[in-house]
């Protein structure tokens, strides 16, 4: 591990993707270092979710490669990518609706990593649920949880697979200021535990606050990468967010 500490966790090389002639990602290259929180910001429709879909194997890139700990995982199927140690909380929560919250998390415990069959997965699952703030809702069918709780469940379930790298899509969407603060604490605590995190947000606040480094994505292209401070000062980032170009909504105006 000591040798790896300095190395790259995730590397994206020249990723491009089009949907029906529409270029959604154009030559995206990025490096996420081991143990950092990497923020990916960009307005709605910038291509953040598509990039996550490519990393987790749900969508095939037209060009480019995804490397995880130096290994090319570009065309691996999603379960194999999960077993390798990448987990993700979806932007639109996708719980197993008829299962309870606890059972949802247990699926992650049981199938996430083959080698390490945890002796007491149930205790572990309960702990994870408590950690994301779902204590007392273990037995509620996931389909009946409200949106915020479903998002929390996404995170607990992803953590249950014991990932090295956690992808969080739109971590702050729809959260109250208090919940945003909790999420920020959780994300930082996870990083301090040794996880690497890649987070997106179309609101800037949370991402800029917790991230060690940030990349700004606009219309499928990386505009700049750097510390949060550097990135917000970048003139193109400002224009992307202030809507000086036509057909660009203000981030705060989006749902």
């Amino acid at each position: 591990m000591a040798a790896k500490a300095a190395s790259n966790c995730l590397e994206l090389r020249h990723i491009s993707k089009s949907f029906q002639e529409r270029r959604v990602l154009a030559d995206v290259s990025l490096v996420v270092r081991e143990g950092e929180i990497f923020g990916l910001i960009g307005p709605n429709g910038a291509g953040k979710t598509t990039l996550f879909n490519i990393i987790t194997g749900l969508v095939r890139a037209d060009e480019g490669q995804v490397l995880f700990h130096g290994q090319d995982i570009t065309h691996w199927p999603p379960p194999r990518i999960c077993h390798a140690g990448i987990a993700r909380a979806l932007q639109l929560p996708a719980p197993f609706p008829e299962m309870t919250g606890l059972e949802n998390v247990l699926i992650g415990c049981w199938f996430g990593k083959r080698q390490a069959a945890a002796p007491d997965s149930e205790a572990q699952a309960r702990e994870l649920l408590a950690r994301v703030g779902l204590q007392g809702k273990e037995e509620v069918p996931a389909g009946q949880l409200n949106l915020i709780d479903k998002r929390r469940l996404e995170v607990a379930r992803a953590l249950a697979t014991r990932p090295h790298l956690l992808l969080l899509d739109e971590i702050a969407a729809g959260l109250s200021p208090a919940a945003v603060k909790q999420t920020a604490e959780l994300v930082t605590a996870l990083r301090d535990q040794g996880l690497t995190l890649l987070v997106t947000d179309h609101y800037l606040n949370l991402t800029l606050q917790v991230s060690d480094r940030v990349a700004a994505l606009d219309q499928g292209e990386i505009i700049t990468v750097g510390s949060p401070r550097e990135v917000v000062r970048h003139p193109e980032v400002a224009s992307a967010y202030l809507g000086t170009r036509e057909a660009k909504t203000l981030p705060e105006a989006a749902p």
């Binding site: 749900l58 999960c82 077993h83 699926i107």
Partner: peptide, 12 residues
Amino acid sequence: ENETAAAMLGVE
């Protein structure tokens, strides 16, 4: 119940 979620949680 949800094929995409299952696949991403390691279910083959």
